[in-house]
Computed example of a mutant assay.
Amino acid sequence: MELALVVGVIVIALAFDYTNGFHDAANAIATSVSTRALTPRVALLMAAVMNFIGAHLGESVALTVGKGIIDAPGGRHGLVIVGGALIGAIVWNLITWYFGLPSSSSHALIGGLVGSAMAASAAVHWNGVIEKVVIPMVLSPVVGFTLGGIIMIAILWIFRRSNPHKASKGFRYAQTLSAAAMALGHGLQDAQKTMGVIFLALTVGGYASPDAHIPEWVITASALAISLGTYAGGWRIMRTLGRRIIHLDPPRGFAAEAAAASVLYTAAIGFGAPISTTHTITSAIMGVGATRRLSAVRWGIAGNIITAWVLTIPAAALVAALAYFLLNLVIG
Rank of each mutant, 00 (worst) to 15 (best):
R236N: 06
R160P: 06
K193R: 05
F22S: 02
L329V: 01
F16E: 03
V204A: 13
L188S: 08
L241K: 04
E2L: 09
G234P: 10
G196Q: 07
W97H: 03
V42E: 06
D249V: 13
I246E: 04
E2H: 03
I10R: 02
S168P: 00
S209V: 08
L326I: 15
A174K: 02
V42A: 13
Q192D: 08
D190H: 07
T19L: 13
I87T: 03
G88E: 03
G8Q: 01
Q192F: 12
T278A: 14
Y18C: 08
A273E: 09
F16N: 03
E131M: 13
R36I: 00
P141Q: 02
S34D: 06
I153L: 13
P274N: 13
G332A: 04
I12V: 15
I153S: 12
V6Y: 07
Y265E: 05
H56K: 10
A268R: 06
L109W: 09
A28Y: 07
V124W: 09
V11A: 13
P136D: 12
F145L: 15
S104G: 05
Q192A: 14
P251D: 11
V204M: 05
L139N: 03
A48G: 04
T96Q: 04
D17N: 15
A55V: 05
I81P: 04
M46F: 01
G205D: 00
A320D: 12
S168A: 12
I219Y: 07
G234W: 02
P251Q: 11
S60A: 15
I81K: 00
V138E: 05
A167D: 07
V134I: 15
L45W: 14
F325P: 01
L38P: 05
G206C: 07
M50C: 14
A55C: 14
I81N: 02
A181P: 04
G270S: 08
G111D: 09
T280P: 06
G144T: 07
R298G: 03
H186N: 10
L327A: 13
G148P: 08
L177V: 15
L184S: 03
L322C: 11
R292D: 14
G148V: 05
A174T: 01
L202N: 03
P210M: 11
K169S: 08
Y207K: 10
T291W: 08
L156W: 01
G187M: 02
I214G: 07
I198T: 02
T64C: 09
A48D: 02
A43E: 01
W126H: 00
D211A: 11
R292G: 11
P274Q: 12
A119H: 06
S103A: 15
E2I: 12
A167Y: 11
A296I: 01
A85G: 10
G242L: 12
G233H: 08
